[in-house]
Amino acid sequence: MTYKLILNGKTLKGETTTEAVDAATAEKVFKQYANDNGVDGEWTYDDATKTFTVTE
């Protein structure tokens, strides 16, 4: 399945996607991606759209 991440960081905004077997796996990938890019904030997940959002 394809999962999407929306980044609403103070210095980085954008979107990315990943292929993962489940939401938990996608979340690990996205949290590492956000961490690597210096984005740390509040996370939400919408199962209907398979979209994670992180907002600083």
Rank of each mutant, 00 (worst) to 15 (best):
F30L: 05
T18I: 15
A34T: 05
A20L: 03
L5T: 00
T2F: 09
K10Q: 11
A23H: 11
V54K: 01
K10L: 14
T2D: 06
N35Y: 15
T53W: 09
T2Y: 09
M1Q: 14
A23S: 12
E56F: 09
T44G: 06
W43R: 00
T44I: 08
I6N: 04
L12S: 08
Y33P: 00
L12N: 08
F52Q: 00
T2L: 14
D36R: 09
A20W: 02
V21F: 13
E27A: 12
K4I: 14
A48L: 14
E42N: 10
V54D: 00
N35I: 15
N37H: 15
A24L: 12
D46R: 03
N8G: 04
E15I: 13
T25G: 09
M1T: 14
V39R: 02
L7P: 01
Y3W: 05
G38A: 07
L12V: 14
F30K: 00
A24D: 11
Y45F: 08
T18Q: 05
E27H: 10
T53F: 10
G38W: 05
K13Q: 11
T51M: 04
G41P: 01
I6V: 09
G9Y: 06
A26L: 00
N37S: 10
A26R: 00
N8E: 08
G41H: 02
G38K: 07
T25D: 09
N8H: 10
T53M: 09
K28L: 12
E27C: 11
V29R: 10
F30C: 02
K4E: 03
G9M: 12
T16D: 03
D22Y: 04
A23K: 15
Q32M: 08
E27I: 08
T53A: 05
G14Y: 13
E42M: 12
N37Q: 15
T44K: 08
G14C: 13
G9F: 13
K10V: 13
T49I: 07
V21E: 13
K13P: 05
G9S: 11
A34Y: 03
M1S: 15
K10E: 08
E42L: 10
K4M: 08
Y33M: 05
V54A: 03
T55N: 09
N37Y: 15
A26D: 00
L5D: 01
A26P: 00
T53C: 08
K31W: 08
E19G: 06
V29F: 15
V54F: 05
T17D: 05
A34F: 03
T53E: 06
L5G: 01
G9W: 05
E42A: 10
F52S: 00
K31C: 05
T49Y: 05
K31H: 09
V21T: 12
N8A: 08
T49P: 02
T18S: 05
T17Q: 11
F52G: 00
G38R: 07
K31E: 04
V54E: 01
V54H: 01
G9V: 09
Y33G: 01
L12R: 10
F52K: 00
A34M: 06
T16I: 15
T18C: 13
Q32I: 07
G14N: 09
M1Y: 15
K50H: 14
D40P: 04
E27G: 06
T11Q: 10
I6D: 02
Y3C: 02
F52A: 00
L5Q: 00
T55W: 09
T16K: 11
A20H: 03
A34D: 00
G14V: 15
T18E: 03
T25R: 06
T11K: 13
M1N: 14
V39L: 10
F52C: 02
T25H: 13
Y3L: 01
V21Q: 12
T16C: 12
E19Y: 15
D36Q: 12
L12T: 10
L7V: 14
L7H: 04
Y33H: 04
A34P: 00
G9P: 03
G14A: 13
F30N: 00
E15D: 06
F30G: 00
G14R: 12
E27N: 05
F30V: 02
K4T: 15
T11A: 12
Y45L: 02
T2A: 06
N8F: 13
E15A: 09
T53G: 03
T16V: 14
D46T: 05
E15N: 08
V29S: 06
A24Y: 10
E27S: 07
D47K: 10
T44A: 08
T2R: 14
K4F: 13
T11E: 11
T49L: 08
F30P: 00
Q32P: 02
A34C: 11
E15K: 07
N37A: 15
D47C: 07
I6S: 04
D40L: 13
N8I: 13
V21I: 13
T44S: 13
L7F: 10
E56V: 09
W43M: 05
V54N: 02
N8T: 07
T53Q: 06
G14D: 08
D47M: 09
A48R: 09
G38S: 07
L7Y: 13
T55M: 06
K10Y: 10
T55A: 05
T2N: 07
K10A: 11
K13Y: 11
L7N: 02
T53R: 07
K10D: 07
M1D: 14
V21C: 10
E27R: 08
V21G: 08
D40N: 13
N37M: 15
A26I: 01
T11P: 04
T44W: 09
N35A: 15
I6M: 05
L12K: 13
E19T: 14
D40C: 12
K10T: 10
N35R: 15
G14K: 12
T18D: 03
G14S: 12
T18V: 15
V29H: 12
T16F: 15
V29Y: 15
L12F: 15
E42Q: 11
K4L: 07
G14F: 11
V21H: 13
F30H: 01
V54T: 03
A23G: 05
D22G: 04
T51R: 04
A34L: 09
N35V: 13
A24V: 10
K4P: 01
N35L: 14
